[in-house]
């Protein structure tokens, strides 16, 4: 059990009617790492994360989170994960404090644990007095900080972040990346995130997997992949792996 992996995905297939979103992908995520799923729109990133988060069921294949099957042991999985959907909004008429407080009460029964989680959430969100304002007054960046705080404050063993900086400006996106990097390390949280932002993935992730049209095209440590493909950055790597040259023309 000591070497148990955070996530084990084996021959995962997901079909929506006749459309096959995932075509038998397999990969592992090690404990404590930040793992990035990179791919163009429609590659199957969100579907993969939703299956890991117990929201969707696989058509075939297995997914285990710390050894727990996401289908047959979904309730146990939900206790050790937290999930941040892409473009997640907020409850407009409750305050950030009330929201974090609700989440703490849902995850923890003990009052001391609830208070600690809430304190951590407030620290991660770093909204100052605005934490007591209704969330409808928050900017998009503030809303995302609350959501990221919500996802990390419960100290999940695995945080699943779907496009955590999608729709944010450069500064807001950098703030979110810093939060994820700092607190995942400090709290020992394994993170699996999806993005089509190559810079974000390069900056945040230890290992990456490149998905395209439901197929896992490449997986490995960032440095190792860059040297293997003889490219300077993840953007070039990404283009090369999915079959485009640097001018954007298809080589597939």
């Amino acid at each position: 059990m000591m070497n148990q992996r955070a996530v084990e995905v084996k021959k995962l297939v997901k079909k929506y009617g006749s459309f096959v979103a995932l075509k038998g992908i397999s990969f592992d995520v090690e404990k404590g790492e930040i793992f990035g799923l990179l791919g163009p729109n429609g590659a199957g990133k969100t579907t993969t994360l939703r299956i890991i988060a117990t929201l969707l069921t696989p058509t075939s294949g297995t997914v285990k989170v710390f050894g727990l099957d996401v289908v047959s042991e979904a309730n146990k999985v939900r206790k050790i994960i937290s999930y941040l959907p892409e473009e997640a909004g907020a409850y407009k008429n409750i305050t950030g404090f009330e929201y974090l407080s609700m989440v703490a009460k849902i995850y923890f029964s003990n009052r001391k644990d609830q208070e600690e989680a809430l304190e951590l959430g407030i620290k991660i969100a770093n909204l100052g007095d605005k934490i007591h304002d209704k969330m409808k007054t928050y900017s998009k960046g503030m809303q995302r900080r609350i959501q990221v705080a919500r996802a990390l404050m419960v100290r999940p063993r695995l945080a699943i972040l779907d496009e955590p900086t999608s729709g944010l400006d450069v500064v807001q996106a950098m703030e979110i990346r810093n939060i994820v990097k700092r607190f995942s390390r400090e709290l020992g949280i394994t993170v699996i995130l999806s993005s089509h932002n190559t810079r974000e993935v390069e900056e945040l992730c230890d290992r990456i997997a490149i998905l395209d049209q439901g197929v896992l095209k490449e997986i490995g440590y960032v440095d190792e992949l860059l040297s293997r493909y003889e490219v300077k950055n993840v953007e070039e790597l990404f283009m090369k792996v999915i079959g485009f040259d640097q001018t954007g023309s298809s080589t597939r």
Binding site: A88, G89, I106
Partner: peptide
């Protein structure tokens, strides 16, 4: 559904 908070709720341990 619209603001995608249901997705979050469905992953809560409840």
């Amino acid at each position: 559904n619209e603001v995608r908070t249901l997705e979050t709720l469905l992953t809560f341990p409840i």
